[in-house]
Design a protein around this nucleic acid. Structure first.
Lengths: 342, 342
DNA sequence: CTGTTAGCGCCTTCAT
DNA sequence: ATGAAGGCGCTAACAG
């Protein structure tokens, strides 16, 4: 593994000259540069970024900590991050926290040790500890997808509350009066916001929410399956389900099918987050979609801004994208015998 | 940002002692350790992995270079890699080559500069250049998913040829005599192998393959869409399609729907790679599936082995997983008026 | 059990 | 236009 000194010796120059060639900095005569470049080629020299970073205090590396790259929403988001990062000359380290605050903090610690220049974080829980840890080391961080109340930090997310409101409103307009919300765990801001939007829509229609109209479970197919089973077994069975994410929607669908309930004839089902077009054979679900790629891109841009303007303590930004509701078959037509509202 | 010296001073010891505490190496008295640990806590010291790696020549980082994390096959594979890597104390840097050999080599160069300890590589093309580059720096690499002829290297992949043979055989047994293969680009080993298996099955049934029964295109939904359109417009329209991957399958489905062809009644459609259960509402496609997670895990294990046994030049391994054929609706029932083969 | 010395490979500072 | 010295934060190799 040749070093800068080997190259210098080989070219008959000082090592700093080689450094200047690599970095295109300072003054160099054409001949010297040519000689050095040839030496580099001959030895197959590759600069050691580690040593460079040790000196310069910059690694040109960003960290993306999210909950589960297996979910296409996050996959798409990750592509947005990677494309923006790599265009700006940064590489990306990514880690899956699996919705565990402990894994998250373990990873963040490792990444801090690796001296990453900045963090993109999808927090597992609406807690400030991880962010405080990062702040304490003066490393910039942009939170994606989920709000974290009680701390000043850049956030890029979607208006989950409004999206849930819209979806619920849609169901209400179709005549549904008894709706269950299959929600993610408490403490996950998107889940909580979606529950809130759901409740606001009910109240806006003058409907008193039942005590068990909000079910809590994992943001997974399994979670959706279990919650839907529970909903379908309720004494006063709901005529519509609102699922808090794509996997929950699929799980709920499975549960409905198993229970012999047709969607949407017997029960309507709407959800959050679409699957990418490339993965869907029969577009079926009515959903509120979030611009995942765009969110990743925007968050990375903000982070890169912070990196550029180093200490210049600008105000923290909160970018909130709107969700978009796509009506398809799973929400069904008007429910007969009920009066649509407004 | 406190350094090891600050901690040493604070604790009244030499810096090497602090190093020993951090790394749990060498002998230490209980009191010294306690004192150092307290100093670490008080100063909020975090070791600098960069400096450590510069000395130790190990970064505890692996690189995963694949073509497109957006494809659930690779997403699942990536989880297999990450889980295995993180269990062994390694972190992961991943990059998308987008099937471009140039992007691939750019990334590999950056990753070499970053001194990653090893590579997991899904080569964009069946060329040896990238692997030779990595080898030339004496860094271990395990190739995943695709064969690279002409170079001695560890490979973990699936038996694409056999999988395509099986799928084609299935179609033949259902009575299809005129089948088109919607294949990926030339030079991608999985695509080529699948074409080969397809042809072998035709020949084994005594069928002379038509001259345009193999179409080439991108491994994407768009590619599948275009190839299927082409196939459906052929003078002697095929009665069945074999798609080389999951996205091509979906694209072909779209094209069939648009052309008013019902699957499987008017045309059968089978493919490679399933979508994860969590993403599929109506399991429909007959497919040959590859154990993506397992492939990622296995490849990482081999890489970690190499890392452990450092110079011990063992024989290179080639692990070939079997594919598994799952018969669902898209392959249809027997075609009437044709004689199924043995 | 603990400390000293001497770099790892690179680049900033200052000199020539 | 080029080079010499010194140090980033850490740890191997030796002392003691």
């Amino acid at each position: 593994m040749p070093t800068i000194h080997d190259v210098a010796k080989h070219a008959g120059v000082g090592s700093i000259t080689v450094s200047r060639v690599i970095n295109n900095s300072g003054y160099l005569s054409k001949e010297t540069r040519a000689r050095v470049e040839q030496a580099i080629a001959e030895l197959g020299y590759v600069p050691n970024t580690l040593a460079r970073s040790l000196r310069s205090k910059r690694t040109n590396t960003l960290a993306l900590v999210l909950t589960d790259i297996t979910n296409p929403f996050f996959t798409t988001l990750a592509r947005g991050v990677e494309d923006a990062a790599s265009k700006a000359g940064y590489t990306l380290i990514f880690c899956n926290s699996d919705e565990s605050a402990m894994k998250e903090s373990t990873y963040v610690n490792i990444l801090l040790q690796k001296q990453v220049d900045g963090f993109l974080l999808v927090p597992a829980q609406s807690k400030t500890t991880t962010i405080e840890l990062i702040h304490s080391r003066a490393v910039p961080v942009v939170v994606i997808d989920r709000a974290v109340p009680g701390i000043a930090v850049d956030v890029v997310r979607c208006d989950s509350e409004e999206g849930a409101f819209g979806l619920t409103r849609l169901l209400l307009e179709l005549g549904h009066r008894h709706i269950a919300c299959l929600c993610g765990p408490k403490g996950v801001s998107t889940a909580d916001d979606r529950a809130a939007g759901f409740l606001r829509a009910l109240r806006s229609a003058g409907i008193a929410p039942g005590r068990d109209c909000i079910l809590r479970g994992e943001l997974s197919q399994e979670g959706g399956y279990l919650m839907a089973q529970q909903a379908l077994r309720m004494a006063h069975k709901p005529s519509a389900l609102l699922a808090a994410n794509n996997f929950i929607t699929i799980g709920a669908m499975k549960a409905a099918q198993e229970a012999g309930e047709r969607v949407p004839e017997d029960i309507a089902l709407v959800g959050f987050d679409d699957l990418p077009a490339a993965m869907v054979t029969f577009p079926f679900f009515t959903v509120a979609i979030q611009p995942a790629y765009e969110m990743g891109r925007k968050a990375t841009e903000i982070l890169l801004q912070r990196l550029k303007s180093h200490g210049a303590e600008r105000q923290h930004e909160e970018v909130i994208f709107p969700t978009q509701i796509i009506v398809r078959r799973s929400s069904g037509d008007s429910v007969m015998g009920l009066h649509p509202i407004g």
